Computed example of a mutant assay.
Amino acid sequence: MGARDVEVRGRAVAVTVAALVLLIIVQLSVIAPLDLPLGSPDVVLIVLTFVALARGPLFGAIIGFVVGLIADLLSTHVLGQTTMIFCLIGYGVGLTHDEAGRTVYLPMIAAAAASALGTAGQAALAGILGNASLTGGQVFLRSVGAVLYALVLTPLLFPLVTAGMRRLYRDDS
């Protein structure tokens, strides 16, 4: 691995994190305050899923860790809660990277599963850490809502994210 490879990866990480930080701001200031049925979609988690799907488990885990930490710093819950969820989801979805080109359904399945696991994982961690604010039924409904929102947003966001990732790597080549 040469200096050029490290530079490309460093630039890709920096640009991806910057884009996701902007999405965190949009998520907190625009999307979260909306009074949507079944909660609000986690657009940051959905985009993280597509980044991990496009670039693999290591990149997904690194981006998930950094973006999760920034999201934790901007929230009122325990530091590390979102970091752990995003890092694990980034890594887990990234493991399916090699299969991404074989089926058009994988992005939808990955986004739906990541959204459900992210919602349930956040609730479970909050309960473990003593800050439980949702009942089991509420967690189930929010997870169902997260899946539905992910399925609706995937056709809109997945092409944008993959095109951005391709362009980012093409510009560095």
Rank of each mutant, 00 (worst) to 15 (best):
residue 101 G to N: 04
residue 11 R to T: 12
residue 171 D to S: 12
residue 11 R to S: 13
residue 16 T to H: 06
residue 116 A to L: 11
residue 20 L to Y: 12
residue 25 I to H: 09
residue 24 I to T: 13
residue 57 P to W: 05
residue 72 D to N: 09
residue 128 I to E: 05
residue 32 A to I: 12
residue 142 R to W: 08
residue 81 Q to L: 15
residue 49 T to M: 03
residue 40 S to P: 00
residue 59 F to D: 08
residue 10 G to K: 09
residue 31 I to Y: 06
residue 161 V to I: 11
residue 139 V to Y: 00
residue 172 D to H: 12
residue 13 V to E: 02
residue 76 T to R: 14
residue 143 S to Y: 00
residue 50 F to P: 10
residue 141 L to S: 07
residue 102 R to E: 10
residue 3 A to H: 11
residue 62 I to W: 03
residue 53 L to M: 10
residue 135 T to G: 15
residue 141 L to A: 08
residue 107 P to E: 06
residue 99 E to S: 15
residue 97 H to D: 11
residue 159 P to I: 10
residue 22 L to W: 04
residue 148 L to T: 05
residue 143 S to T: 12
residue 159 P to C: 03
residue 91 Y to A: 13
residue 165 M to G: 00
residue 31 I to H: 07
residue 80 G to F: 02
residue 35 D to K: 13
residue 50 F to C: 04
residue 118 G to R: 03
residue 166 R to L: 13
residue 24 I to V: 14
residue 171 D to L: 15
residue 65 F to W: 11
residue 119 T to K: 09
residue 137 G to D: 01
residue 85 I to Y: 02
residue 96 T to I: 07
residue 75 S to E: 07
residue 154 T to F: 11
residue 164 G to P: 03
residue 91 Y to D: 02
residue 84 M to R: 01
residue 58 L to F: 15
residue 151 L to H: 00
residue 100 A to Y: 06
residue 78 V to C: 04
residue 100 A to D: 13
residue 51 V to H: 00
residue 172 D to N: 05
residue 3 A to T: 14
residue 139 V to F: 02
residue 148 L to Q: 04
residue 160 L to M: 14
residue 165 M to F: 11
residue 45 L to H: 07
residue 130 G to C: 08
residue 156 L to E: 02
residue 17 V to Y: 11
residue 3 A to G: 09
residue 70 I to H: 06
residue 171 D to H: 08
residue 114 A to M: 02
residue 115 S to N: 08
residue 6 V to F: 13
residue 158 F to S: 15
residue 162 T to L: 11
residue 52 A to I: 04
residue 36 L to W: 09
residue 129 L to P: 08
residue 6 V to T: 12
residue 162 T to R: 09
residue 162 T to H: 10
residue 61 A to Q: 07
residue 169 Y to N: 07
residue 148 L to M: 11
residue 9 R to S: 12
residue 172 D to F: 15
residue 29 S to V: 12
residue 166 R to E: 15
residue 15 V to N: 01
residue 22 L to H: 07
residue 51 V to S: 02
residue 51 V to M: 01
residue 87 C to Y: 08
residue 39 G to S: 11
residue 2 G to W: 04
residue 60 G to Y: 01
